[in-house]
Amino acid sequence: MSRLTIAKTYKMYIGGKFVRTESGRSIVVENTKGEIAAHTCHGSRKDFRSAVESASNAFTSWSGITGYLRGQILYRMAEMLEGRREEFAAAIQVTQKITPAKAKKEVDASVDCLVRFAGWTDKYQQVLGCSNAVAGDYYNFTVPQPQGVVAVIAPPAPSLLGLVALLGAPLCAGNTIVAVGSDLNPIPTAILGEICQTSDIPAGVINLITGKQSELFEHIASHRQVAGIYSAALSKKNRILIETGSADSVKRVRFNSFSDEDWYDGDKVASPWNIEPFVELKTIWHPSAC
């Protein structure tokens, strides 16, 4: 007798748990042949809000641990991703007509990107901060500090690499993340939650939502608890919508435009200048050591 295959129910990852959307809605994901490949959650603004709550609660501990420890945790995430290369490569190919080699290359670049950010966790302070010259017997330092909850709006493609590269930058500095995954292919976003859960990332530090991004722009921008927004590949109309909505709460909004090749250029996507928009620079006086 032939075996009935068990298809995975894709859920969102909020507050360290795999949850269905509170709205009860789902999206049918079709593969490149137009067949039904999967159903994913169609997340709502309420899901976004509850994700922000989780991220906000997780911020104190995530920003409080040492950069060294954060680096180890991000590296662990890279290890987990490496161990599931095949699964992610297959997930990437569900909705996009790309070769298996290209899909693997995207997974590899995502792993490398995480490793780069793992490295930056205890080094970005030295690059972005400074010791300021003063005319007296004391010190004046400028030190970067994470802001809080950063919302990430992933590009349609590359569906995995785009998400990882955008969330890595604010994450490594100690911000907590609410990411809305690719509209084009939500499956890598859905399974990235499993990587987070098995890699010592504390609950609430990374929250992953799938759904229709355009529905959420307004709510992401106007939510006052969100300190920053990081996105790429948005239309001008949507950029204006987000910037206008963010003005009231003075959010940091960063739109990058990476070309297809740029995404694979670690120096570009994992540059400390992509971390810089999501830190506050605090300048402090310090008495001389002697």
């Binding site: 106007s222 939510h223 006052r224 709460s249």
Partner: peptide, 9 residues
């Protein structure tokens, strides 16, 4: 107000 407040508001 239509927008969701922050806890520190």
């Amino acid at each position: 107000t239509g927008s969701y407040a922050a806890t520190y508001d």
